[in-house]
Nucleic acid binder design. Structure first.
Lengths: 146, 146
DNA sequence: CTGCTTTGGTTGTACTATGCAACCAACAAA
DNA sequence: TTTGTTGGTTGCATAGTACAACCAAAGCAG
C-alpha cells in the first residue's frame, strides 16, 4: 500500500523526468539544427529511417513520424535534389515509390553516425558500463510505451 | 583494462541511448506542438522559465535558450497579447524590462503542469519507485554534462 | 561634460518547416 | 463500370527562426 511520502517521492521523480526530457528535446533542436551541410535534423532522421528500413514509401515515413504526407513529399524532394536518395516505382503498386538512400546518402549517414557516436562517447566517457546499459534500457522502455 | 567485447557493448549502449533520445526529441515536437490553446511548446517553455526565475529580462531568456533576441521579443509580445505576462521597467536599467507571468499566466502554467504530470503519471504507472529515481538521476546527469 | 561604444529591445525581411486542402493517377471493391 | 480509397504533388497559409538595421539608455574615456 502506497504511503503519502512514497507517493510524494514518485511525484518528484516524475516531475524531474519530465523536466529533464523537455530539456533534452529543447537542446536537440537547438544543437542539431544543422547536422550536416544542407541536412537538417528532420531530413537526417528521414534518411536514417530509410536506411534502417532498407527503403520504404513516403506514406510509411509520414505515418512513422506523424508528419503530413505533403511535408514528407517536400523533404524527400529536397533529399532527392541533393542526390542522397533514389526513388524507384513500387512494382506492387504503381502509385507508390520506394525511396532508398543513394550511395552518397549511405556515405553521409555513416559519416554523421560516426561523428555523433564520437560525441556521445566523450560525453558518456565516465559512465560505468552497467549505468550505460540501464540508462539505455530505461529510455527504450519509456519510448516503447506508445 | 577494457576488453574488445566490453568496448563493443559500450558502443551498443551508446548507440541505443542516442537513438532513443532522438526519438524523445522527435516525439516531443509532434506531441506538444500545441500544448494549450494559443500556446506552443516554445511560448510555454519561456513562460515556465519566467515562473522558475521569478521574472527576468528578454535578454536572459535569449541567452538561456540560445535564441535570437528578436525571436524572444516576438514570443514575449505574443504572451503579452494573450495577457499571460506582465512587463515592468527594470528599475536598475531603464532600457530593460522585467517580464513576469501574470496571474492568468500562473494559472495556465499550473493547469498545464498538472495535466502533463497526470500524463506522465499514467505513462510511468507501472515503474517501480527505484527505477523512477534512477531514471531521473541518469537524465539529470546526462543533461548536467554541459 | 562630451562623444564613442555597448547593451536591451523592436521591427523589417527572408527562409524553413509544417499542415490543410485541392488535385491527379492508380488501385480496389461494389 | 462506377465509386470510393490511397500515394503523391502542389498551392496556399502560418509559425518559428535568424540576421540586420535601428532606437534609446548606459557606461566609459578623454
Amino acid at each position: 500500500m502506497p504511503t503519502p511520502t512514497r507517493t510524494a517521492a514518485r511525484s518528484e521523480s516524475i516531475d524531474s523526468i519530465q523536466r529533464e526530457l523537455t530539456a533534452v528535446a529543447r537542446r536537440a533542436r537547438s544543437v542539431t539544427a544543422q547536422i550536416h551541410p544542407g541536412l537538417t535534423l528532420v531530413t537526417y532522421t528521414l534518411l536514417d529511417h530509410l536506411h534502417e528500413r532498407g527503403g520504404c514509401r513516403g506514406t510509411d515515413l509520414a505515418a512513422h513520424f506523424l508528419l503530413d504526407k505533403s511535408t514528407v513529399s517536400r523533404q524527400i524532394a529536397a533529399l532527392d535534389k541533393l542526390g542522397l536518395v533514389e526513388r524507384t516505382a513500387d512494382p506492387e503498386d504503381l502509385r507508390g515509390q520506394i525511396i532508398r538512400p543513394s550511395a552518397a546518402g549511405e556515405q553521409l549517414l555513416a559519416d554523421v553516425r560516426e561523428r555523433r557516436h564520437q560525441a556521445f562517447l566523450s560525453r558518456l566517457a565516465d559512465w560505468p558500463d552497467d549505468d550505460l546499459e540501464r540508462f539505455a534500457s530505461y529510455l527504450a522502455l519509456y519510448n516503447a510505451h506508445t
